[in-house]
Write a protein that binds this DNA or RNA. Structure first.
Lengths: 202, 202
DNA sequence: GTTTTTATGGTACAACCATACCATCAAACT
DNA sequence: AGTTTGATGGTATGGTTGTACCATAAAAAC
């Protein structure tokens, strides 16, 4: 046999092509052919590495979910060095607000997948269920820590506030994607809301 | 000529068929044929009343946006009779949380359209830009009124709080659509958050 | 050195889609 | 009464899509 190629690498290459194609023309417009062209391989190869389109779409969704996890974790780590809970929470929530083009297309395709997974039975959207649950607990824990440190208002319910925070950042992120708001405006609102949870100490 | 039919009525009938079809199998799966079957007319008729598929999709989107406005206004009127600002705000925001099946499919298709309009140039999503802007002003005004009546915390910025409220309800609504949360859970969180804006007076 | 594998290209095919074209029937108008 | 015109059905067509099939070169296995 020839080159004896690294399957995972090739698969990743093709999936990335799919995501780029989806970002440009929408997930609904993705076709075997468009992916092949974008990846600069033959359609046959796409078939070879992902038998069917359904499997290709599924693999791309999984990769997307993984990347989302990495993105958030990177934010946590970067903010975590200078470490106070408010900074960490802020960093995590800002991930949902797309600023540059890369972030914008990423979240756009992610959202398209999320919405698609509701109606498409082949995409039983499990990847979209686990992550937010984890996030909710994580944020609640950070809020509790902040309260104990005296940084956050003590009368708040951490669990509920965590849900509100996630909803706010999701809602703001979506509004930015839909061009209803600029990323700056969304960021400002998010800061404002955080200010209501973490009162300034003079 | 025969029956001399009411065009607007027929168009409405076909559009409703499209929306039902989209609700069941996803907007991406809508085809001339599926709409025709759902409306129990021939494909030719769909062509007759909406020349092209693009125009059909556009008309349905417009109708959807109109209905959304009616839905919100109905909430305002229903709550407006017993009239305090908090009740009105609550009613409006609860519209975004789909409880029954009808509401769920409505919001699902609406969201699918909103996301689609980002990538599809033919659907330059204007209908999705004007409405949220109006809502924001409306909510800000209600909040200001509530503050003057002494019902809402006076130190809040009405404009920013209005944006936060819209983002929260959009985020919660989306999470319900994605089956991340039940409608009840979302409602509870919304009430909690309103409780932070409208402190209980003993 | 022959025989398997493995990776790849090309092409063919059946299904489906949007749309264009042709036909018809009946009400309204003249 | 005859002609126009609005409403509808049916069918053909050109393009696209996902996938199956056939071929082949070349590295590995024996």
């Amino acid at each position: 046999m020839p080159k004896l190629v690294d399957h995972e690498e090739r698969r990743a290459h093709i999936i990335d092509a799919l995501l780029r194609s989806a970002a440009r023309n929408g997930l609904h417009a993705v076709t075997m052919r468009s992916v092949a062209i974008e990846a600069d391989v033959s359609v046959r190869l796409v078939q070879y590495y992902f038998d069917t389109k359904e499997q290709l779409l599924l693999a791309a969704m999984t990769r997307l979910a993984t990347r989302m996890g990495e993105r958030v974790q990177r934010r946590v780590r970067t903010a975590g060095t200078t470490a106070d809970p408010r900074g960490i929470i802020e960093a995590v929530l800002l991930e949902a607000v797309p600023t540059d083009e890369e972030s914008r297309t990423f979240h756009l395709v992610y959202t398209e997948y999320a919405v698609l997974s509701v109606t498409d039975p082949a995409l039983g959207g499990q990847p979209f269920l686990a992550a937010p649950d984890e996030m909710e607990s994580f944020l609640a824990a950070q809020l509790t820590a902040a309260q104990q440190a005296g940084d956050a208002a003590p009368h708040l319910d951490p669990r509920q506030e965590a849900v509100v925070l996630l909803a706010v950042s999701a809602g703001l992120g979506l509004s930015v994607l839909l061009n209803q708001r600029t990323a700056d405006a969304a960021t400002t609102v998010l800061h404002y809301h955080l200010g209501r949870i973490f009162p300034d100490r003079a």
